[in-house]
Amino acid sequence: MGAAVCNWCKRLEMPIIVFAYLALIPLLSVNMASEIIIFSIYALSYNLLYGFMGRLSVGPMLFLGAGVYGAAMCCVYLTANPIACIAAGIVCGALLGMLLGPVTVRAAGAAFALVNMAFNQVGFFMIQTGLAGWTGGSDGKSLYFDPIGPLDFNKPNHVFGLALVCLLAAFFLMRRLTESPFGIIIKTIKENERRGNFLGYNIYGTKLLVYVITAAVSAFAGALYAIMFGYVTPSFISPARNIEVIFATLIGGRGNIYGSLLGGAIFILISSYLPNIIQRWELFFGLILLASVFWFSKGIPGIMDLFGPKKQDVNASAKGGLR
């Protein structure tokens, strides 16, 4: 019975997601809805690395920035075809992940977090100063994308449609990954990677693959940002913004793909509307983060569990078996 209900839920989840984002348009604006969707793709990618595999990176903006600048440079110097620009952004992110991954995934804990932050700082410097002749440095670049038939991604409604399709694709990919045998290995790495070795898995290769997928999907979100905003500046790769996706992941719940959608939406709403109410809104933001870390480590889904029906006691159900 439970499994049948679960199957129905899975069949309905895509229409529910589409409906929820469409409902945001009259409540907010089409641009805000698009921004929430794109940020949620970014949060989904980060959740794979941090939530599922347990690797806290303090430099995920590097890969978002790689996607933004990959798409932008393609638009400025090669072709303004938006699909080609998105592909260029994803390739840039994936290549960067392949380049840095062999170094970063050997580290764990604080070392992993800091190595990623260091690479993010280097990337920020390169965009702002080292490659300023190409990237436009602090001034950035304006972008204009060619229409593809009736689709003109310079129009907000069309960007919303594109972002929504991309979100569904990213969500589907993440769900398949996390529910597959590969997902089980990733969760094993989070809990005890040594045991994975003894079960015969190439744990280093798995970690590297997750890192590259995270980089590529973050870059995918970055490329969509380039199309949505129609300009690029170094703020898209700024290390100061790394906390945003970490916040979204913590609020939404680590290791929960639905949580990425929820956390992404909450972060964009807080950061967009709270400054209108509270001048020093970052204080409120910090307090939420503290509460998430110390009391609500499972994020909003964990809080909802507190008020939901109590789960069956495992040991009670196991009564009669071995002690």
Partner: peptide
């Protein structure tokens, strides 16, 4: 992992299973 694949398995002393996975997933692993 090479040694495990060659047919030699080690069952640790600490009885640690992957606690966040179900028993079925632990077996699948």
């Amino acid at each position: 992992e090479e040694i495990a694949r060659s047919g030699l398995r080690y069952v640790f002393q600490d009885k640690r299973v992957i606690t966040k996975l179900t028993v079925r997933e632990n077996i699948h692993l």
